[in-house]
């Protein structure tokens, strides 16, 4: 595999937190390589460091040691401002609780990340409508989050995650708040994004059924990657 094919490249990543005068190591000398177009799941027990790893890859946090390269860019060296720019242009976020702004309609929520890009208002609206069409919510554009079901809210969140055409989508327990049927629909949608649009997705999950949809599953325990498996092993 050539270097250009690698989207996520972590080398010797360590993350420690200072809590009450004590040093707490969450991730220790972790190496991870993910090619472009991968749909990867991160699994592991609570406190194993899954979300911390996801935050580091998404540029929400910085490692204590080691290097993180995303699409050839060393993000662990970026300033706060450049990291924010990196997130807005290169990363799409899907959260467990959807995190939509309740004062905005579905289409306005999807537009939100584009407010930071030099895009005209009409173009912003067009792109947001297209993203909502992709997730099958063209008939719910003007609905507020409170008027949508959990599954629909998560679809809006997915539309928000893809609207700026990011190279990477990070999802933290995207089906954690959903019933089985809605969870399956969301996972199917994520599969489609990966397969048909070629999006690289990295998803933290506790749910083996969700992990089964991923092409590759990484298991973490006590801050270390334990093993790598095919998604099919969790089916």
């Amino acid at each position: 595999m050539s270097k250009e094919d690698i989207l996520i490249d972590l080398r010797g990543v360590t993350k420690t937190y200072e809590r009450g005068g004590e040093s707490l190591t969450i991730l220790e000398s972790l190496d991870l390589e993910l090619p472009r177009g991968t749909f990867a799941a991160l699994m592991g027990p609570s406190g194993s460091g899954k979300s911390t790893l996801l935050n580091l890859i998404a540029g929400l946090d910085k490692p204590t040691a080691g290097s993180i390269e995303i699409a050839g860019q060393r993000i662990d060296r970026l300033s706060e401002a450049k990291l924010a720019k990196f997130r807005s242009s290169s990363v799409g976020f899907i959260f467990q609780s959807y995190n939509l702004l309740p004062v905005l309609t579905a289409v306005e929520n999807v537009e939100l990340p584009l407010l930071l890009a030099p895009v005209a208002a009409s173009e912003r609206r067009k792109r947001a409508q297209t993203a909502l069409r992709v997730v099958g919510l063209e008939d719910r554009m003007d609905h507020y989050p409170r008027q949508l079901s959990g599954g629909q809210e998560q679809r809006v969140a997915i539309a928000r995650a893809i609207v700026n055409d990011p190279v990477l989508i990070v999802a933290d327990e995207p089906t954690g708040d959903l019933d089985r049927k809605s969870a399956d629909e969301i996972l199917k949608l994520m599969e489609t994004l990966n397969r048909e649009l070629g999006k690289t997705i990295i998803m933290v999950t506790h749910d083996p059924a969700a992990a089964a949809r991923a092409g590759v599953v990484h298991h973490l325990d006590k801050g270390r990657l334990q093993r790598k498996a095919d998604g099919g092993e969790h089916a």
Binding site: A84, N99, L101
Partner: peptide
């Protein structure tokens, strides 16, 4: 607080 955190995640600056 959670909305501000979301906005920061999406790339909004302090």
């Amino acid at each position: 607080t959670s909305e501000f955190a979301t906005m920061r995640a999406l790339g909004f600056m302090p």
